[in-house]
Simulated scan of single mutants.
Amino acid sequence: MSLRVARLRRVLAGAVLGLGLAYGITVGGLYAAQRSLVFPAPAGFAELPPGYDRITFDSAGGLALAAAWRPPASGKPTVLFFHGNGDSWAGGARAMQALADTGYGVMLPEYRGYGTNPGQPGEQEFYRDGHAALDWLGAQGIRADRVVLVGNSIGSGTATQLAAERRVAALILVSPFASLPDLVAEKFPWLPGRWLVRDRFDNAAKLGRVSAPVLVLHGTADTMIPAAHARRLARAQPRARLVLVPDADHDLAYLPRAQQAEAEWLAQVVR
C-alpha cells in the first residue's frame, strides 16, 4: 500500500509540475506578445475619409505621423478624436459625423504603427503623440481650451491623460475602461492580469484631476467592456455626467443616438 501511495504521489507531483510549467509558458508567451494583442494595428493605407485633408504632425522620436483633418466653421470648437485599438481614421470619421455636420473641426490622428505610420504603439507613445497632435492644433491657431477630447475604447486612455495634463474645453469618453489591467483581470481571471499588463491606461486614477467638463457614455449591452467600468469612472469624477445607453454594445460610438447625446451635452458646456 505504501508503495502504491508513493507512486501516486510521484504521478501527482509530475502532473502538477507539468501544469505549472505549461501555465508559466503560457503566461510568459502572453507577456511577450501582449503589445500585438493590445494593439492589433491595421496595416496598409487607409483611404482618407470624405471631407478631410491628410496632414502630418511631428511627434517624439522624430516621427512624422499622419492625421485626417477638417477645419472648424467660424467660432466652432475642434474635436481631437482617439479611436479604438482595432479601428482607423475611417471609423473616427463615422463616430464624429454628427459633430462635423454641425461645424466642429475634427482631427483624427492615426496612431504610430497603424496604417502607414512609422513607430511602435504603446501607452507612453500614445500620450506623447496626443500632446503632439494638440501642439499641431495650437500651431493652426486653435488653443487647447477650444479643443474637445474624445476617446473611444482604448482611446479613452490618451484622451484622459491629455485632459489631466492640459486645459481643454471638454472630455468625452465612449465605452471606456477604468484601467486596462482591471479589464484584463476581469476577462481572464486565471491570469495575473494586474501584473502582466505593461500598458496601464489607468483612467480611474487620473479622471479626478480633470478640470474640464466630462461626459461618460457607455452601452448597457457592452460585453467587451462592461458598463461597470463607466460607473467606476463616474465615481472617480463626481462632476462627470454618466449616460448609459440601453441595449447598445461596444459599437456605441457609431450610433446616431450616442452622437446626438454628445452634441446636446457639448451645446450645454462648450460655448
Rank of each mutant, 00 (worst) to 15 (best):
W69N: 02
V5Q: 12
S179Q: 00
R231I: 05
G92W: 00
L19Y: 08
A234I: 02
A159K: 07
L233V: 01
P40C: 10
D249W: 12
A95T: 07
Y111Q: 13
D202R: 09
D202M: 08
A205H: 12
P50R: 12
L244E: 12
D145N: 13
R112S: 11
A248N: 03
E165M: 11
R271W: 06
I154W: 03
V11W: 13
G155W: 04
K187T: 07
L37E: 12
A253N: 09
P121L: 10
V38Y: 02
Q120S: 15
M1R: 08
T158C: 08
L149N: 05
G29S: 09
S2H: 13
E165Q: 15
G62V: 01
F39V: 04
Q140A: 07
T223N: 13
E165A: 14
G113K: 06
D249A: 14
G208T: 08
V210H: 07
A68P: 00
T56F: 14
P238V: 02
V210S: 05
V79A: 14
M1F: 14
A248S: 12
D87P: 01
R94Y: 06
P189R: 11
W136A: 15
D247N: 15
I225D: 03
W136D: 05
G157Q: 07
V269I: 03
A90H: 01
V11I: 12
P213C: 12
D222P: 05
W69K: 05
R231T: 03
A73G: 11
S36H: 13
L108G: 02
P72M: 03
A33G: 11
A267N: 03
G75D: 03
P71H: 13
Y114K: 06
W69T: 01
R112T: 01
I25R: 11
Y23W: 15
V197N: 05
D101K: 15
Q120R: 15
W69E: 01
G105V: 01
G141L: 00
S156I: 01
H229S: 12
Q97V: 04
